[in-house]
Design a protein around this nucleic acid. Structure first.
Length: 625
DNA sequence: TACTCACAG
DNA sequence: GGCTGTGAGTA
């Protein structure tokens, strides 16, 4: 008989409960040496070419081909060239001081170029935009497969595969051998607290690729083994699609919890996956030379201090934790908590933890060492602020004019990032506050902030104007004092975003809803990430546009329609009512829109100077995707 | 709200 | 090691 119950299995079909189930199936996937791969693909090299991604003279990402030569992120380009004369160093895109767009300068890298062509921090600022763009493409693929995707950083995600594996096991018929449990499920022949039946012996599946099974255990002992196997086949397909469509190799870990999945993805690189089955957790942790500091959030001071406090041995420290506190009962945790608190007091370390925090911490360590620390998938919090920052060396910002030149860069970068956000969330973001900060050679900080008032969407010009004013204020106040110039840092922060929802805005325009605008706030999450109400049910509602007397079948077509209205209104408010917008039917107008295509994607942004017609197509560009 | 610190990549 | 970003804690 299985050690799991029906409710454990059913829970993984619920977005809110899945991660808590003992049968949960979580994946962590990261793109190998992401920046290096982006550059490799962009410049048409292949996996065997030793590409490195460069910033000034430093290497910020090393492809696996280059790692074979012993090159690391610590090396300078010159060091790396000594290790590998065929090295392919590719510099990141950069903004030039005084310009508000970024560009690649593939003909003038920073290693063997004449002085005047060299990319230096005095005249340029690195742009990470290309990586954010590629990241979005990758994330999009994950969303096509999985209903819970958490973007953990620009190059890694967590996936809750609960619904995927549940469906493969109980709803599909691809895999033979599950007929009996499927019938039982379909006919409702079970109680939630009943144990699941024994796993059939004659399953028509192979646990490959990725199974971590060093002790050569019988593969399908229980349903968790089966589910991980199904999950690994899904991630294998996802990863293959990423290779096929975008060309990037990834590493993947699959396990019961996020922390274990993350250790798994790091286990084999590049282009590999590792499944840490529940029965192998202890073996994996003890024989993979893992310690407390291996876990996410324990990598810094906290993990080191705790290891010392708890007197963890060098050998198999996690096994030591498991064996020192062998039971999960609350008094054992209380004991451990006490020990942490006691040691913290005794040794007068940098700890200052409340009783509550000690309790939580001990609980966390207890669970981490057992690969059982469960964390929910988090919807990405809505943006609060956005910064464009430049550390300056030498004389590159000696007076007011220099500041303005960097402001151009900041304005361009921030506008670009707002556009990215707007595409990702299908919302309009309007910052209401701007801060300009500077740092003097004596590391003194000064800042000025002010409200940003603009009608409609923010433009680079708006940022530039306010930025100029604030910089002027700073210059007037401090510019004449000694030790202000040359600045060692200057940055622009925009915050306090007003977030317009395109669909709702237009609906409101026609008086069907009261809520138009939602301010940026804690409760704002992307609809597809909104776990609370998307759980197991769907709400059907009628989608109708009164003014046009039209009904819509799908959310998508309705949204398209309302976006059309919105864009038209926006266009009118900016350009005045046009013939286009006055007398055409919806169908005719729609044709106008779809024929206004976004320019083909290029590897660089155009300068911001635009003719009138280009300005107009900007509006179209946004909505014609 | 502004600032610092810890942590991550 | 330079750079960017986030969340928690603090005043």
């Amino acid at each position: 008989m299985s050690e799991y119950r029906w409710k454990d299995l059913l829970d993984i079909n619920s977005k809110s409960k899945a991660y808590l189930s003992p049968l949960s199936c979580i994946a962590h996937i990261d793109v190998n040496a992401f920046f290096a791969q982006v550059e490799q693909i962009r410049c048409h090299y292949n996996v065997e070419d030793p590409v490195v991604c460069v910033q000034w003279n430093s290497i910020i990402a090393v492809s696996y081909a280059a790692r074979k030569f012993g090159i690391t992120r610590m090396d300078s380009v010159f060091d790396a060239l000594k290790k590998c004369s065929n090295l392919v160093p590719i510099h990141t895109a950069v903004f030039r001081k005084g310009e508000d767009f970024w560009q690649y300068h593939d003909d003038c890298g920073s290693w063997h170029t004449e002085e005047e062509k060299r990319l230096t921090p005095e005249k340029f600022k690195v742009s990470l935009d290309p990586y954010r763009r590629e990241s979005r493409k990758v994330i999009k693929i994950f969303h096509e497969w999985c209903d819970m995707v958490e973007k953990a950083s620009v190059d890694e995600v967590f996936l809750d595969l609960g619904r995927n594996v549940f469906a493969t096991l109980l709803l599909g018929d691809e895999v033979k051998g599950f007929e009996s449990i499927r019938d039982q499920f379909k006919n409702g022949e079970y109680e939630l607290d009943d144990y699941l039946p024994t796993v059939p012996r004659d399953l028509d599946i192979q646990f490959d690729p990725g199974d971590y099974n060093p002790e050569n255990e019988f593969v399908f002992q229980d349903w968790d083994d089966v589910l991980f196997c199904l999950g690994s086949k899904i991630t294998d397909k996802i990863r293959q699609q990423i290779i096929d469509v975008l060309g990037y190799t990834t590493s993947c870990g699959i396990a019961r919890t996020r922390t274990m999945a993350k250790l798994g993805s790091n286990f084999k690189k590049p282009n590999a996956q590792t499944v840490i089955r529940n029965r192998n957790i202890g073996y994996f942790l003890d024989n993979g030379s893992f310690e407390l500091t291996s876990f996410w959030s324990m990598g810094g001071i906290m993990g080191k201090e705790l290891s010392t406090l708890l007197e963890l041995p060098k050998e198999k420290p996690l096994r030591y934790i498991r064996e020192s506190w062998p039971m999960a009962s609350s008094d054992v945790k209380a004991f451990m908590k006490e020990k942490i608190a006691m040691l913290a007091d005794d040794t007068e370390r940098s700890f200052n933890l409340s009783d509550e925090q000690c309790q939580q911490l001990s609980e966390k360590i207890f669970l981490l060492a057992r690969g059982d620390f469960k964390m929910p998938m988090n919807p990405r919090p809505m943006i609060r602020s956005m910064m464009s920052n430049k550390n300056l060396r030498g004389e590159s910002c000696r007076h007011y004019q220099d500041c303005l030149a960097w402001l151009e860069v900041f304005s361009g970068e921030l506008i670009g990032r707002i556009k990215e956000l707007e595409q990702e969330y299908e919302r309009i973001f309007i910052p209401k506050t701007m801060t300009i900060s500077t740092r003097t050679p004596g590391f003194q900080r000064h800042s000025r902030s002010s409200g940003l008032v603009v009608g409609g969407r923010i433009k680079a010009k708006d940022l530039m104007e306010l930025g100029t004013r604030l910089t002027k204020e700073l210059d007037t106040k401090f510019g004449n004092t000694k030790d202000y110039y040359p600045l060692t840092n200057i940055n622009m922060v925009i915050s306090n975003f007003e977030i317009l929802e395109t669909g709702r805005t237009i609906v409101d325009m026609f008086g069907r809803q009261t809520q138009v605008i939602r301010k940026s706030g804690d409760d704002f999450v992307k609809p597809s990430d909104n776990h609370s109400n998307s759980d197991d049910c769907e709400i059907k509602r009628t989608l109708r546009c009164e003014p046009c007397d039209m009904d819509f079948e799908t959310e998508l077509s309705f949204k398209e329609h309302t976006d059309f209205h919105y864009a038209m209104r926006l266009s009118e408010s900016l350009n005045g009512a046009t013939e286009d917008s006055k007398n055409l039917s919806y169908g005719e107008r729609r044709l106008l829109f779809s024929s206004a295509k976004r320019p083909a994607k290029t590897s660089q942004q155009g300068p911001s100077k635009k003719s009138h017609s280009q300005k107009k197509s900007d509006i179209y560009k946004y909505f014609s995707k």
